[in-house]
């Protein structure tokens, strides 16, 4: 049984491998076996990160990225879940809408960056446009699938217990779709992080993504790698956060083995 906060239990063997990789990296750079002008060792990167944190720059950049992820993900969730429910419940909407979606969905979000720049300039709006568009698909598709793939027997159960159509939706079909919606939400959150960073690199000069470019252009590889590491840690924490939240809200959805 997992702890109350899902992913919070630490995988020690996995952490050991990570530590060995970092140690090997440190040794290779220090011994001169691997030598590039701008390729620092992990400890130097850590020192760079600590300095950035002391100066407060790191937190300002982190705050910007967190806010744009939160905004982008929330907008994507609202649109994605609504569209997904509509598509899931209505075969008619699926019939007319799915073709359009299947054409839009494979377009990489980054392809809309120039469009965003043209419309909104170097701004948060551009960043959100680039983040929201690709991020809404996973949660939309999973919401639709969760509803449309609910076993027809569940509908029979609702009817034999004389539930109204509305109660069948609220008390049976939505809870049945919830695990699938949560999976979509988690994939979307991971994507929101990636797209926010990408948008900050090419579009909106702010946040962690821009900081990576800024430090690169300032020839501070330690700081550049420190920002990359922060993005990685942020991804792990966001995923663990959503997992922990959903586990404590709906214990049954997290405990059930994947079907």
């Amino acid at each position: 049984m997992r702890s109350r906060f899902g992913a919070a239990s630490i995988n020690w063997p996995g952490m050991a491998v990570l530590a060995i990789v970092l140690a090997a990296w440190e040794a290779l750079v220090r011994s001169g076996a691997v030598s590039f002008e701008f390729f620092p060792a992990p400890l130097a990167i850590l020192q760079g990160g600590i300095q950035l944190a002391r100066d407060g720059v790191l937190f300002a950049d982190l705050a910007h990225t967190l806010i744009s992820i939160a905004l982008g993900w929330t907008i994507a969730m609202a649109i994605g879940v609504s569209l997904g429910l509509l598509l899931g419940f209505s075969p008619l909407v699926r019939r007319y809408g799915l073709a359009t979606i299947e054409v839009l969905r494979p377009i990489p979000g980054i392809a809309f960056a120039p469009v965003g720049l043209l419309l909104f300039g170097f701004s948060l709006q551009t960043e959100l446009a680039v983040t929201v568009l690709p991020t809404l698909w996973p949660v939309m598709i999973n919401t639709m699938g969760g509803i449309a793939n609910a076993h027809p027997r569940l509908n029979d159960v609702g009817r034999t217990f004389r539930l109204s159509r509305g109660d069948i939706v609220l008390r049976i079909l939505l809870p049945a779709a919830l695990p699938s919606i949560i999976v979509g939400a988690r994939i979307s959150l991971g994507l929101a992080l990636v797209m926010a960073i990408v948008a900050e690199i090419v579009g909106n000069p702010a946040g962690l993504g821009y900081a990576i470019v800024r430090e690169q252009q300032a020839m501070n590889p330690e700081n550049m790698f420190a920002y990359i590491a922060v993005v990685g840690v942020l991804g792990v924490l966001l995923n663990a956060g959503v997992l922990g939240l959903t586990t404590s809200l709906w214990p049954a959805t997290a405990q059930r083995p994947a079907a």
Binding site: H151, R153, L154, D156, V157, R159, T160, F161, R162, R171, I172, P175, A176, L178, P179, W250, A252, T253, R256
Partner: peptide, 29 residues
Amino acid sequence: GPPEGVVIVFQDYANALLQWRSVAANVAF
């Protein structure tokens, strides 16, 4: 429509039970 006081028990129990509810909560449904 489904008459009062008449209830169906289905063959495929795994599909007919509400997997997100405990045993007691299923029975209370």
